[in-house]
Design a protein around this nucleic acid. Structure first.
Lengths: 188, 188
DNA sequence: GGCATACTGTACTGATCTGTTAACATAAGG
DNA sequence: CCTTATGTTAACAGATCAGTACAGTATGCC
């Protein structure tokens, strides 16, 4: 089967991009850090942008799978799962290589809203919002979209705060705030 | 007085960095877009990093002056000012060239926490938090630091959401959430 | 054996990167 | 008039950028 080498490339490239940034990562560095020849890279992806898009697609899949699985493990009810999101975030922030959100960083480096990389990043956030909205609906929210938006604000804020390291425990700050917003939206 | 040319350089460089990003902006582009010779640039700032740091310092000053002035104009009480922050943000997001937060983008491109650019960006966020805390204290919050943290989460989340353009009105979503959090922290 | 596939290694192109250097212009102050 | 400061244009150095070209290797299938 052919997927192995290509998938290996995308996985390793994802780590390198995450650690060093997009513009700051040259193809030669990718060759050095992935151990995959430049020829192979350009056989699988004809431009650096294509490789970045593939890395973002993988990250989107990885992150969503991880987050929603963890939320289900930590929360037994829809409401509990929404709160558990912030416990999950706390675990993420505590991971050794944590350096913020891949998509925020991608959008920061590729700013034009028409840029494919920017669009891919925005798409990830949109998907998350609609997933949150689904859970909010199951939790009985009268206006699940609004609740999802508010939780998203806390989540993105917590990620940014964690990236800067300006507050001690942004995930738990966000969790406390989320509980208040959930009480307002769902009662008690 | 000698400040003119140097200040002009920093002001113009700030705009170019904001629009195009840091790594993506070469010194030649700065020459072209600022009209200032490369020789002069390197007389005032011996490295690109120094210039970026000066631009960030200016942005920090500009942004804080603008935000707190606007909050005072729009809110008559400390509590009203904290709410007015989100009306101010709405105005910012609606500005023509809005492309997210300069400091989030800087931290995204210079990720290492020991990097001077990263530190300068984190410093800006720290200053804002402590200012929010001061206002929260004047508003009568029992735990002004916690309230400031929560409002900061909403603010950063709103900026990220606005940068992605994934929700229609992130500033007003954040404002609604802030009112709930303020009611919780300050009563009614 | 013959052939295709998938990969590696290396050298290269032309552009662009940060930063330097040299020759020159302008104006103020002694 | 000379000096000094501040600016300009322009070419340059050495590194690195994305991407290409070409020669060679390993595997497996017919």
């Amino acid at each position: 089967m052919r997927p192995s080498k290509r998938d290996e490339l995308v996985e390793k490239a994802l780590l390198v991009f995450y650690r060093h940034g997009f513009h700051a990562t040259g193809m030669d560095r990718l060759v050095a850090e992935t151990g995959i020849s430049k020829t192979s890279m350009y056989k699988h992806f004809s431009t650096k942008e294509d490789l970045i898009l593939a890395a973002l697609a993988l990250r989107d899949k990885q992150f969503r799978r991880w987050l929603f699985r963890r939320m289900e493990q930590l929360g037994s009810t829809p409401r509990g799962q929404l709160i558990a999101m912030f416990d999950s975030l706390k675990e993420w922030f505590a991971q050794e290589g944590f350096q913020g959100c891949m998509f925020i960083k991608a959008a920061a480096e590729y700013q034009k809203s028409a840029d494919p990389i920017h669009m891919k990043s925005a798409e990830h956030k949109s998907i998350l919002i609609s997933c949150f909205s689904d859970i909010a609906k199951r939790a009985g929210a009268a206006d699940p979209d609004t609740l999802a938006c508010r939780l998203m604000l806390l989540k993105e804020g917590a990620i940014v705060a964690a990236q800067f390291g300006i507050t001690k425990n942004p995930a738990m700050d966000a969790k406390a705030a989320a509980k208040i917003l959930l009480a307002d939206a769902l009662g008690q």
